[in-house]
Design a protein around this nucleic acid. Sequence first.
DNA 1: TTGAAAGCGCTAACAC
DNA 2: GTGTTAGCGCTTTCAA
Lengths: 362, 362
Amino acid sequence: MADVTLKDVARVSGCSVATVSRVLAGTRPVGAEVAHRVRAAAESLGYRPNQVARALRNRSTGTIGLVLPQITNPFFPVLVREVEHALHAGGRALLLADCDDDPATEANRITALLDRQVDALLVIPVDETHSRDAVALAESRVPLVMLDRVCGPGIADAVAVDNAAGVGLVLDHLAGTGRRRFCFLGAAGTASTAVERRMAYEAGVAALDPQAPGRTELGDFSLEWGRAAAERIWPARPDAVICGNDLIAVGAVQRLRQLGADVPGDVAVTGFDDIPMASLAEPNLTTVRQPAAAVAAEALRLLDQRLAGRTTEAHQFVRLAPELVVRASSIRRATPPGTSPSGTAEAHLNLPLDRGHLETGT
Amino acid sequence: MADVTLKDVARVSGCSVATVSRVLAGTRPVGAEVAHRVRAAAESLGYRPNQVARALRNRSTGTIGLVLPQITNPFFPVLVREVEHALHAGGRALLLADCDDDPATEANRITALLDRQVDALLVIPVDETHSRDAVALAESRVPLVMLDRVCGPGIADAVAVDNAAGVGLVLDHLAGTGRRRFCFLGAAGTASTAVERRMAYEAGVAALDPQAPGRTELGDFSLEWGRAAAERIWPARPDAVICGNDLIAVGAVQRLRQLGADVPGDVAVTGFDDIPMASLAEPNLTTVRQPAAAVAAEALRLLDQRLAGRTTEAHQFVRLAPELVVRASSIRRATPPGTSPSGTAEAHLNLPLDRGHLETGT
DNA sequence: TTGAAAGCGCTAACAC
DNA sequence: GTGTTAGCGCTTTCAA
């Protein structure tokens, strides 16, 4: 039962290892009768090709590495699932590496996977700048595609959601439902998602609310920080809190309510990503959905393209369109409360509601 | 820069591949001067041992497979993280397989990983009965440890939380805070966690509330099902809803509130696992915390023990103690509402509050 | 202490 | 069509 090799199958079926290999791989024509004998022998012996030997010989392990910042970040598991399924469906396997949100760890993980001769790498870079060198180095050794987050331009193929467009959708929606005092709770780091969302917000909000840039808090993509930031921002009495991701938004909603704010009556709160938690928060969170399955599929398509050999072509950067998911956290009630419960009504700006879109397309 | 082999290092340092191998592996004494030359050459060439070749020769890939039901189940990512970090710290790597909660897929994934010559397998079985054969087969080929969930007795080493003890903690807590009409929303399947929690509930609740067994709903470990089940159970006006996991509990709380129930005023709701979402739900969810880090560490300890050779010893089954985390969803308010808001006060049983514990220990 | 050589299991020339 | 054989890159006897 243990460790049946080609040689065993050859002996039992009375032919050479080469013939057996050919039958099993179907790589070259083989006599029908012999082929049958070989297959029968392989079957009865329970032969399973040793993938390590095959990998050494073929210079291909059939293994893809996925390097991500933190598997406990609730947006990533769905991405992992999509990637895993696609890979196994193609007879490949997934080596997973978790970087603990640390670029140094990320560099180590990447070299560890390269040492293991992965055929290609999928990387969600921890940081737009600090991940650059490790990613660039890896890209020179093996096909590599960044997904969800990216670092630097032209460093490798990449697929990500159009974060600017997503923020644009949020601003349109909030402005269109009468919100006028915006603020932003985002991540300070240089993860590309953090940067892009922050920049898009600044660019888009200027026309809507000139004071808004002064009401920006930057920390990290966590729930705890969302709570703390909400506390700092609330005295400015915004009527719309745009958050860099769903975790921040959920934390913000919790704290705002504790502070006596009515969400969405006094203040709308929006997130980004549409993690499972978003639809469970109280109130359900308006957010920007990332097309996770499409991101994974597109990343693998780019990878297969590189693996198929067109390795010299220029790097591709695919941007996928996000989708606004409007839920309770940003919806004006049919019967608005007569008085501003917090007693701090503010002057509102008057601006056209249908401002230009922010989407940048590809 | 690409593909420096032992032979290259040997040539540059002017000695044989055998010597180079010995220097780098430190496996046998080598002349100090030669050793130095070798190391310098390896360094300057950027030599990295090819793990695949090493694996073929050593009959060990340094790779561990982790097979789990669904990475999107929010309890698993933390387990994955712990396992991944422990493995990489030991110079090993993690092959991840996601079974889509399907035993047939699970069997395929397991053989795929075995074909890739994983040194050992960590398995969270999808199902107590349907996963059995595949796990048993795998266990005969390679060291294998089940974690979190188990299947069948004595099929392999296993480490899991003491689910019965956990349910006991919940029952004690609820009974001790005056709850008297219990009901249970659990999973119908034969995942071991589902079975053990269900059985423990039935065994433990009998003495507290003879009618309780009639108020049991069984479905699956999902939020959606938790919502539906809450709707079915509410007409019976329980004052305590014990759920098989946190997802069910969060769903139940949502629907109960929609139905006008006051949680925890009218009815306490408890979960199991303490996933991140539990502390975010409104109200925060009382639940049973699984010691995820300890589960992972213990599983790897058992694995290393097997890998170290004591392969003939009897299977070990380690049970880890859970911890009750009391949060708002089960706490009686300091000032209880004078009237039962739902207007359906029920007769309460009178039972001693300090019933015997359910814990079974190891 | 060092080198030559065998061989892990497989595939692909290259012969016949 | 089929067999023989040379490696893939590494570790480890076995000799020297």
